[in-house]
Structure formats: structure tokens, C-alpha cells
Amino acid sequence: MSTKVVDRPPLTFYERTYLPAILGGLKVTAKHFADTVFKGNSVTMQYPEERWVVPEGYRGAPYLVKDQDGATKCVSCQLCEFVCPPKAIRITTPGADGLTADRKNAEKMPKEFEINMLRCIFCGMCQEVCPEEAIFLQKDYSITGENRESMIFNKEKLLKLGGTHAGVQKWKNKLEEAQAQETFPVDAQ
């Protein structure tokens, strides 16, 4: 990697008077001034009233989603908790007697799911690692709270914010398959 020294072209007398630079500057600034004042071409967005259109694929705050039947998709596998670089996610597991899932056959659902939005860096690792498509980075970018506690979002809040995700209902399909196989000779429980 050799450095190529580019010769500066010598300035003419006219250029050395700084006049062309001054006139050029005047031209550019005057054009922008006129644009703003007379044509109203200002780039400023009046933030609280005007809102930015969040593009698709934007990585905002991660929220939990429900499936079409209103069931929690998360099965408390804790992969997101494991992968989260700033350790913002904290899952309380359901425990041994934990058939707390609000849909059949998935057996498991987090007892509590907390995301500390102060810690979250919106990297999207949780979304990427989630095998159940239960957590998504959504479009919220302005998250505020009055104290640190209010910035820790619990499962209820995350589910409410997350909304419904229209995806494959893996566990429901499994359940229906099992129900269809009436021929299975051993009584299930």
C-alpha cells in the first residue's frame, strides 16, 4: 500500500484573493437560504408531532408475540437469555409442575419473562436465536420510563406490546396430529 502524493495545483492570483471561494460560499448558502425561507424545503422533522416512518426490518425494542389463537409462543427455552450480549433478558422458569402453558402440548411456558430495556442494545440476537419465533424486534424506538423499575418490561407487558404473529403453529399441529392417531394402543396418561 504505497501512498500516492498528489500535487496541489498552484493557485492563480484570482484564487489567492479568496474571492472565488467567498463567492462560491455565498452562492451555496444563498441557495439553501432561499430554499428554506421561500420554498419551505426544510429537512427538520417536528418530532413529537411528526413521526418518522419506521422502515421494514428496523431493529427496535424486542417484544414477545402471541400466535393466532392468542397463545404465548415462548416455551422458555432460554436461548435468548443465553445469547443476549448485555444480559438484558431474564426468564423465570416454570419449574417441575410447570404445565403453565396457555396452549396444549407445548408443556412449557415462562413463568416470568423480563427484558430490561435500559440494558437492551437492540442487536436482534434474541430474535435470531429464537426457535419458536416468539420474540421479534419491533418498531418501537422511543422507550421512556420514570424510573429504572418501569424500564424492566415483564411478560404481560411484552406480550401486550408484541401483538399477534401469524406464523406456523407448530405445537397446535402436533397436538392435532396426535389426536388424529386414535389407534395408538397405550392410553396417554
Binding site: 402436533k174 396426535a178 392417531q181 395408538f184 396418561q189
Partner: peptide
């Protein structure tokens, strides 16, 4: 083909659960 579905969470004993 469809997988054979077997009993899940079978209570084998006081400390053991079986997923067939």
C-alpha cells in the same frame, strides 16, 4: 409421513417423568 405420537409426560415414579 406423520410421526407416531406416543404418550408424553408419563409419570413413572415419584421422581421420574417419561416422554415416550
Amino acid at each position: 409421513e406423520t410421526k407416531v405420537h406416543k404418550p408424553k409426560a408419563v409419570d413413572l415414579g415419584p421422581r421420574i417423568v417419561l416422554d415416550d
